[in-house]
Write a protein that binds this DNA or RNA. Structure first.
Length: 431
DNA sequence: TACGACACAAATTT
DNA sequence: CAAATTTGTGTCGT
């Protein structure tokens, strides 16, 4: 689909302020706009009308104390595909969606393929082996699904009320130490490996409306896939009993890009904690168990592992509308990496659920998770703040995850200005 | 111990 | 099915 339905509103394309780098950078010291629990509730109800957010998961939003970045939440709105379209966007804000109080909902989906397996409850990979990350995003909450060359929208910086016209969106991937600011380099190889160039994965343009369950590589403009990724370093203390295991996490960021000025990160999501082994599989006693569940489990059961107990991370992050893609992100991540909330995403496009909260490494409550073998959807999930997934969604996309990889889903909620909720799905998915 | 480099082999694609 | 390509991993030196 490349056609837009007529916008239910219009505006004249004039913005209160012209975007510019200065204004963008000037807000980097603003605090994050907290989102009230009430609003969160409201948002959740919007995205999941049938699954009220568990009270226990209503962790207070990030406090602004430690926030170094300004957040100017980003009011993402559609803009007409054609700039000359007349209109007045003061009337556009909430009119076009069935949930007048919330506005559009962005959903960012990401998955990791290849390379990962479970070892002692931890998602694990080898530094030297490839993995790939695919991500899409889309927009819901309006009367139609935006699925085209771009998401017409505006981004408003709350501090200045400045509107920026989003030129396009892009998605980037990076890694860091769980619960720390320390960035971990990712490298991307060509098939020639050592003999080819090594790159650092850069954000790539993406259009809304992709489907992660479809081909993830190719000329699909609606999905970004970073192939042949490797961690540059291994996690510390792998397999040691005494020292605390270090974990990494993959971070996927959605950026709004503008005709001028630096991109602004508008959303982010984080994977479950990962162990990255630095040595050959032969050095690890469990290496032979890597695929031990390859057959059994319930590949047949819809989307095996829904509810599987795979640690997931719920991360609610107010997104900064200020700050550049690099420094701003770093600052932001440094300031609020661990605001994790629980939610039960029930996206119409999600084949996965339930999504367990993964609260805080280095002491994850893994004990509450079932072992690798796909369990029935644990009914006690609600004890961890997540109601059980009442029923597995049908495998609407016809894909069944490999049995030896439980789909891991991490749900992230991003609050845009005025309570726009972005729900992020991040899951491992062995194809 | 971690990691880069080289090499071989298995797996996958063409 | 064979060749080519791509990926996994064993090993060595630093």
């Amino acid at each position: 689909m490349t056609n837009y339905m007529p916008l239910p509103y219009s505006y004249n394309g004039e913005y209160p302020t012209q975007p510019n780098d200065q204004s963008t950078n000037s807000e980097t010291s603003q605090p994050v706009l907290p989102v009230s629990p009430q609003l969160q509730q409201g948002l959740m109800s919007i995205s999941q009308p049938e699954t009220p957010r568990p009270e226990s998961t209503h962790t207070p939003p990030p406090t602004s104390n430690s926030e170094k970045l300004a957040i100017s939440p980003n009011l993402i709105r559609r803009r007409p595909p054609i700039p000359s379209r007349p209109a007045n966007f003061t009337t556009t804000t909430f009119h076009s969606n069935p949930y007048p109080s919330a506005g559009p909902i962005l959903q960012l989906h990401a998955k990791m393929d290849r390379g990962f397996f479970r070892a002692d409850q931890d998602w694990t990979c080898y530094r030297r082996n490839y993995f790939q990350v695919s991500s899409t995003f889309d927009v819901h909450g309006m009367n139609y699904l935006i699925q085209g060359p771009e998401v017409p929208c505006l981004l408003r910086k709350t501090d200045t009320q400045e509107f920026l016209q989003v030129d396009y969106f892009s998605i980037g991937v990076c890694a860091r130490v769980t619960n720390h600011d320390k960035k971990i380099e990712l490298v991307q190889h060509t098939p020639k490996r050592d003999k080819g160039p090594q790159m650092i994965p850069e954000p790539r343009p993406v259009r809304a409306g992709g489907n992660l369950h479809l081909a993830s590589v190719g000329s699909n403009h609606n999905i970004v896939t970073f192939e042949r990724l490797q961690f540059k370093t291994a996690t510390a203390n792998n397999g040691k009993r005494r020292a605390a295991q270090q974990y990494y996490e993959i971070v996927v960021d959605l950026y709004a890009n503008f005709p001028r000025g630096e991109p602004i990160r508008v959303a982010t999501c984080t994977s479950a904690a990962l162990v990255v082994r630095g040595r050959s599989p032969g050095h690890y006693a469990d290496s032979h168990t890597r695929f031990k569940h390859a057959d059994s489990t319930d590949a047949s059961s819809e989307l095996a592992g829904n509810g599987s107990g795979i640690p997931t991370t719920n991360n609610v992050t107010a997104v900064s509308a200020a700050g550049g893609p690099s420094t701003g992100i770093d600052q932001h991540q440094a300031s609020s990496p661990n605001h994790r909330y629980t939610s039960l995403p029930n996206s119409p496009i999600s084949d996965f659920g339930p999504y367990s909260p993964y609260n805080g490494y280095p002491y994850p409550s893994l004990s509450s998770y079932p072992p690798m073998i796909p369990p029935p959807p644990p009914s006690n999930q609600s004890s961890s703040g997540i109601p059980p997934y009442a029923s597995h969604p049908p495998p609407s996309h016809g894909q069944v995850p490999s049995p030896y990889f439980q789909p891991v889903s991490c749900v992230f909620e991003i609050y845009f200005e005025y309570c726009r909720l972005l729900t992020f799905f991040f899951f491992f998915f062995r194809e």
